[in-house]
Design a protein around this nucleic acid. Structure first.
Lengths: 327, 327
DNA sequence: ATCTATATGTCAACCGGTTGACATATTCAT
DNA sequence: ATGAATATGTCAACCGGTTGACATATAGAT
């Protein structure tokens, strides 16, 4: 560090290292990037100077020239949710192992925020984006030739989507309730207007119900849905919630109404995150392969970044049925 | 977008806009940044060109010149934890409202990772860092004159630390167990070698215990601590866990041993995150003011970024005792 | 001694913006 | 008509790296 004048402290830059080592700027850059012929003596002088000055290359300057930032944008509703928290953890982790860093965007399910984040990421020249936000109709996703992968979320018809096998999950959840003898099974799901593969959970639920000659009934998440559900269906004896938090709310409401779980009412959720397994281990649920989803998403993104082609658009990973004490 | 040759597609740049609008590069920059005198006619021409070409300024180039990236680095153990997930959500959110973006780093409690992340953030020229990672002795935190704020974590003696009132939390938790009639109360905590204000939870526990003429006993988190705790203390009737996930594990083990909660054994946790409140609402806990912590941390960071001085180093925010069914 | 191949290093343009210094045009007062 | 003030815009240097083109030195071959 070198003082220019009071208060202003200049960061060490390449030229300082070059001066110290008694070589040119280029030589230092060559040494640091291992390019061209450099004698051991020079190499060492440079490394000593770098060490001595504690030089940290300015990635911004580097990025500008090489037109690559090694930054991936992540757009998800919120880290304050066990599923996304766990997913983002793995995504960040894997990115890091590939030498990429991660700009985090919590879109909070708001289309305007998502759009702004997308623009911001483009201005920041990110090398790719992984999005699992919950909005549709962001046309910006289409006309960018930017590496992009969706998680549980259709972004545009040519953009790969990675998700768990939602249909199978919905099927297994519903089947479990039926096998356990439930007669009136209700499903709680997010709005079907969101174009997400998670809608397949509902589809599977309806298919299985019909196959077994039951009448499917789905409630859409919203204010007081759970209370309404219980009020309108006093005899409900099986509930398939499309995520574990909803399932937890169902359980709470059931307790409030003195419904005994699993005797009077069986409940199964969806996600099976680590946090849920710890906080609510008795919950039956469909566990998503979160790490595998993250792995695949990054793999597909890296392929795009490296210009390799990949025709497959939809990717489904196997889920796992966890039978707990709530069924 | 303008094709240079096959496959390569050049992003629209300032010069393209200038050409389109029939003015110079400077003029476009002036219009976009509202500097100097620009006639309405010129201004409009430029805006039209920007619109037409869908121009997105390259923030990398801009950052390089103005020496400011509007990026804040966040270093925390993992988003896959309800407390950090919620905290990071708020931090990102508030940053966004100030026009800053966030580079996320999951240090996983590993000192080497934390150190590497720190270096990476410096190379990326972040404007500031908020760290709540769980290691000590990262000397790099000291000699950087970089805006820095710790959350629940001492980084260096001049770096502000924001935390909840851990002493008060520990006191209230312990006192509650005593008030409820517990005679043998045990505390489970992280390693005291981590220099975190969270150690005050333990200190308060010990102080309150002694005041009440009880013998304090603390177990450090590790393999099978909980089983060991029960094995070694068959008569334990109160457990104060230093976070809610541990409390949940305690509850699970207690059930396995057919200990009735709260009759035979009372349990209280710490954190009281939204996720815990949903998944395990019956848990008694000390709730941290997560959003307020985030607010204050960002406020302190912004002060540093703007060069304002702030003598206070330690900041404590009030916690809230939530009495649930486990006590 | 001359020529070529191999090492080693320097120069200067470039990435895409920003901005101080400067040039020109227009308006207004004297 | 002249000078000063105001309006409008251009030029070129700069941010801190990277890299192709080029210069020089040394070694080895003929």
């Amino acid at each position: 560090m070198r003082k220019i004048n009071e208060n202003e402290i200049q960061k060490v830059k390449l030229d300082d290292v070059a001066d110290k080592a008694g070589v040119s700027r280029t030589t230092v850059s060559r040494v640091l990037n291992n390019r061209g012929y450099i004698s051991d003596k020079t190499r060492q002088k440079v490394h000593e100077a770098v060490e001595l000055l504690n030089y940290q290359p300015n990635e911004i300057a580097r990025s500008l020239f090489i037109k690559k930032t090694f930054i991936i944008g992540l757009i998800f509703p919120t880290t304050n949710n066990p599923f996304y928290g766990q997913l983002i953890f793995h995504l960040e982790n894997i990115c890091e192992s590939f030498g990429y860093r991660v700009l985090l965007c919590n879109s909070q399910g708001r289309e305007d925020k998502e759009r702004n984040y997308l623009k911001m990421l483009l201005r920041h020249q990110v090398d790719g984006i992984i999005a699992g936000a919950h909005n549709r109709g962001i046309e910006e996703y289409n006309n960018q030739h930017l590496p992009l992968v969706g998680i549980d979320r259709f972004l545009s018809k040519n953009i790969p989507v990675v998700s768990s096998d939602n249909y199978d999950g919905g099927k297994k959840a519903t089947q479990l309730l039926i096998d356990k003898g439930c007669k009136q099974i209700i499903h709680i799901n997010g709005s079907p207007s969101l174009e997400t593969p998670a809608n397949l959970r509902r589809e599977a639920y309806e298919d299985v119900m019909k196959e077994n000659e039951f009448h499917p009934r789905t409630y859409i998440i919203g204010d007081n849905v759970i209370e309404k559900l219980f009020d309108e269906n006093p005899n409900v004896d099986g509930i398939f919630a499309s995520d574990d938090l909803i399932a937890a709310n169902v359980i709470r409401e059931a307790k409030r109404r003195n419904r005994n779980i699993p005797d009077d009412l069986k409940v199964i959720g969806y996600d099976g995150t680590e946090t849920t397994r710890i906080l609510l281990p008795e919950l039956s649920t469909i566990q998503q392969p979160v790490k595998e989803i993250a792995d695949l998403a990054i793999k597909l993104l890296m392929k795009q970044i490296n210009g390799e082609s990949e025709p497959q658009i939809e990717w489904k990973l196997p889920i796992k049925l966890i039978k707990g004490e709530t069924t």
